[in-house]
Write a protein that binds this DNA or RNA. Structure first.
Length: 473
DNA sequence: TGAAATGTTGGGGCG
DNA sequence: ACGCCCCAACATTTC
């Protein structure tokens, strides 16, 4: 392989041009660059909304590359076989990619790197998805962090790499290899609810992410510390969706936040801390991957969780028909937009795992079905935090009261009236979208009365606390 | 990044 | 002036 041979960039959750170390290195080399996206088993296994959103992201990224006279080559199959075929087709001498951190991707990528090196190919993995590689942060004792605040203190002054510029040009190969038609991948096949309902809420692609970051830094970040907690206000950064697919890098968000901090914007530090929560989730997933599948505190396996997904109250929770306005509003926001305000996430998680005493895995899986900003590490950490089974988790006895939360965080009922139609003479248009999105078999309509509470808050709370008190661990 | 029960304090009304 | 009660406002404890 000569030093002029093409470099394949294997894109995964890094669908951007700006601040992309692997792409940057490849373009710097002066060699032709072949961007590829591979639909392998891990992509096939994605759940409905994340998979659909990924399809949109791949399409948008191909468009962005074409503006640079490049393109995204799409191939389906086993990743190492696809790469070997592509190398044979193009004479590529190198494969670069940005690292992922979930155990399945890590295993796959490790095997592929070894196989490619055996073939004499220059296989290189780069950072970019995280500001702090999980193995570079350790406690005095040499272990990993299990509590957020010490983790924050350990990283906040470490320094974050300055974002790399987007390549001015991406050298094309002499001929482009064959590429699948994205439509043939059917990435939206599992979206059995209306993708067209969710679509208007999608913030697609790198440019949209950049302008959102800019707008947030110009306006929202000043009040972020207060307004981020109020779901009726557009007070969050709204970047989770783009961070999830790497349409923007955390480094760029961090440096923007740092500049806001220097400008005296009050909320900027809170924003930086939120970015570091994402890093903390990856840190935990890397050092303790079973956080994805098992109670991180193993004793919680003994807890009398309801684990049957078919129960009526689970169905009511998923459908946003529990009779608790805050819970239902949040669950419908999730269904309609593919995202949920963080305050809502805490409330619905507390309600499911405490008032309904359902296993957090039920909630984790539903979020994985519905979230267009789905992130394996954050989702698992969040659910185990809420359930009390995770590291640095909220104690089980800390039960959110959805009614009290309404008075604290949705005083004017802006949020609940935006997402709930029943019982209102003049429902919000977003609340009505829910009825376009749901499957007909749910058999409900906007004119129905608002559902009765499926459980009294007092009873649910008492039952959960009794179970906790009588636990045998 | 709770909520509810219980405890403490201090001001005001009143005999 | 004093004791007593009431109660709101906090603080602490408990789950």
């Amino acid at each position: 392989m000569s030093e002029t041979s093409p470099i394949i960039i294997w894109f995964r959750r890094d669908l951007r041009l700006t601040d992309h170390p692997a792409l940057h290195a490849a373009c710097d080399s002066g060699r032709p660059v072949i961007p590829v996206y591979i639909h392998d088993d891990l992509v096939a296994d994605l759940r409905a909304a994340p998979k659909w959103r990924l399809g949109l992201g791949v399409g948008a990224f191909d468009d962005a590359l074409r503006e640079k006279s490049s393109r995204l080559v799409l191939r389906k199959g086993n990743a190492i076989e696809v790469l070997r075929k592509l190398i044979a087709d193009t004479g590529a001498g190198a494969v670069y990619w940005s690292r992922l951190y979930d155990p399945q991707s890590t295993k796959r990528d490790t095997e592929i790197k070894e196989a490619l090196k055996d073939d004499g190919i220059d296989a290189k993995s780069f950072g970019g998805h995280l500001m702090f590689e999980p193995w570079t942060v350790e406690t005095q004792a040499g272990g990993y962090y299990k509590v957020y605040t010490p983790f924050w203190n350990a990283v906040k002054n470490k320094g974050v790499d300055a974002p790399l510029s987007a390549p001015t040009s991406i050298k094309a190969p002499e001929t482009w290899p064959q590429s699948d038609d994205l439509d043939s991948w059917n990435m939206g096949a599992a979206m059995d609810r209306g993708a067209d309902v969710v679509r208007p809420f999608v913030q697609l692609g790198e440019k949209a992410a950049q302008s959102r970051l800019g707008a947030f830094m110009a306006r929202g970040v000043g009040d972020y510390k207060q307004t981020r907690d109020i779901p009726g206000v557009d007070g969050t950064s709204n970047l989770s969706e783009n961070l999830s697919l790497g349409e923007i890098s955390p480094h760029q968000c961090w440096h923007a936040g740092q500049r806001a901090l220097e400008d005296g914007k009050q909320g900027a530090e809170t924003f930086l801390k939120e970015l570091v929560w994402r890093e903390f989730a990856y840190h935990l997933m890397h050092h303790s991957p079973r956080i994805l599948t098992d109670n991180w505190r193993e004793e919680w396996a003994e807890f009398p969780w309801n684990e049957d997904e078919r129960r009526a109250e689970v169905k009511a929770w998923k459908q946003g028909r529990t009779g608790e306005p805050f819970v239902d509003a949040a669950m419908r926001e999730l269904y309609i937009t593919g995202r949920m305000h963080n305050r809502g996430r805490m409330i619905v998680a507390s309600y499911l795992t405490k008032h309904l005493m359902c296993h957090w895995k039920i909630g984790l899986h539903w979020f994985e079905d519905c979230l267009i900003d789905w992130d394996p590490a954050s989702n698992a950490m969040g659910w185990q935090w809420s359930a009390g089974s995770g590291p640095d988790a909220t104690p089980y006895f800390r039960v959110f009261n959805p009614e009290t939360q309404l008075d604290k965080f949705d005083k004017n009922r802006d949020y609940t009236s935006r997402w709930i139609a029943e019982g209102r003479s003049n429902p919000h248009e977003d609340a009505l979208r829910y009825f376009d999105a749901i499957p007909r078999r749910w058999n409900i309509s906007p004119g129905d009365p608002y559902p009765e509470k499926i459980i009294s808050l007092d009873e649910g709370r008492e039952r959960a606390l009794d179970s906790y008190k009588n636990r045998n661990f």
